[in-house]
Nucleic acid binder design. Structure first.
Lengths: 223, 223
DNA sequence: CTACCATTCAAACGTTCGTTTGAACTCGGA
DNA sequence: TCCGAGTTCAAACGAACGTTTGAATGGTAG
């Protein structure tokens, strides 16, 4: 019987994942060496290959740990909307989509914050294997939301909707990744720390307006 | 007198810059080795350090070659709006801002296309030195546009405008970088090649609507 | 106690990295 | 013709990379 203190089952794995999350965010995948990573995690250099098999497999594990639950939460939020007959509001759908992402940023211990920045950057990651990896992690939830928005916006041409969802996804990704770039525009440091609740309101208003913008562009095209 | 065919002044420099543009886009900065780069450029391995000094200085040169003219074009477009008294339209200002960026993507020879993807990704670049580098390249033009939008939208709280510009900037960055991610949403390959003109219309409509969205969010905040 | 399995460890593997070196080459001007 | 500055070249530098190895270690079941 395992009476010893909590039995740190796979504690090494967790320490590696936490260190990887932070260092991948700070220096990128290629910029993070296994020596630095294992030193930060306080484990032996060989531990990564023992527990994960390779560096690439570690990258995959880092994403799976957070991304799978996040997309489950996304689908759950959407299903809640649908059972409550509130799925006809594009704004509600947008909020359901972005909330699980923004939740990451209010993680007090910093792990979620690190992952949020890492995730937001990875959609434009050079490494094709990594991009495809998270692409297929997203695919199921993405198709659900696409179908929901098609129902909520029946008058919108499908192709136009695809592009607007693309823009929406991009804005969220950038917001998660570029948390320190606001000062590029503000010209000074942000007055206080990220207020995730306020950010959610701002982002939802911006995206809802963009997604439901008038369709005049298709007519003006002749110009 | 230099009668010889066009005198390829600094042709080696150009070949290196072109190869760097493509390879940095494909594999990132750290993922691109000087050996691969110089082989692709058809020059000697030592040529990069001879002509640029170091790999980091090459990265800087790659950005300066395209980014400086682009931001000059941005400011010029804005000044044209202002002399024509059309600077009161947020949509016109947005169009002036995004057009020079989108122009890169219709470069027939591919160089601009490569740079567009590279640029869009770099706002979320892990390497802080690189991020700061392009940050300060952007700063002057950014402040001009911020002032213009403050004048065009006098009723908008300054802080709200900063965030909406941040979102706008992010959407453009993502659009430039993630040219192949649309199929993540579309679920299939895009029917035809990027139509920059149509994309400009779609992006302008989306961003103008987002930027001028109603301000109700500030009231709803109590909920 | 012993045997066993999972895990940890220090050390080394071969490869590739960015950069440096000093000689060879090119070519216009004295 | 010869000089010298500008450029290219093959070769090598030490350092750092991801991964592998085989021996030690620790706790558990027989």
């Amino acid at each position: 019987m395992t009476l010893r203190a909590v039995k740190p089952q796979h504690e090494t794995r967790t320490r590696i994942l936490d260190a990887a999350e932070e260092l991948f965010m700070l220096h990128g995948f290629e910029g993070t060496s296994m020596r630095l990573l294992t030193a930060k995690a306080g484990v032996n250099l060989a531990a990564v290959n023992y527990h994960f098999g390779s560096k690439h497999a570690l990258i995959e594990a880092v994403f799976r740990r957070r991304l799978d639950p996040m997309n489950v939460a996304r689908v759950a939020e959407l299903e809640k909307l649908e059972t409550e007959d509130r799925a006809s509001s594009p704004e509600a759908i947008i909020r359901a989509f972005i909330t699980p992402g923004l939740r990451l940023m209010e993680d007090a211990k910093g792990g979620g914050r690190n992952f949020a920045r890492l995730l937001g950057r990875t959609y434009t990651e050079p490494n094709k294997a990594v991009r495809q990896l998270i692409g297929q992690m997203y695919a199921p939830a993405m198709q659900r939301y696409k179908a929901a928005l098609e129902r909520a916006l029946p008058q919108m041409p499908r192709e136009e909707l695809v592009w607007r969802m693309h823009f929406m996804f991009g804005t969220l990704a950038y917001t998660l990744a570029a948390t320190d770039t606001v000062q590029l525009i503000a010209g000074c440091k942000p007055e206080d720390r990220y207020d995730a609740r306020l950010l959610e309101e701002r982002l939802t208003a911006f995206l809802a307006a963009g997604l439901t913008a008038p369709l005049k562009s298709l007519i003006k095209k002749a110009a």
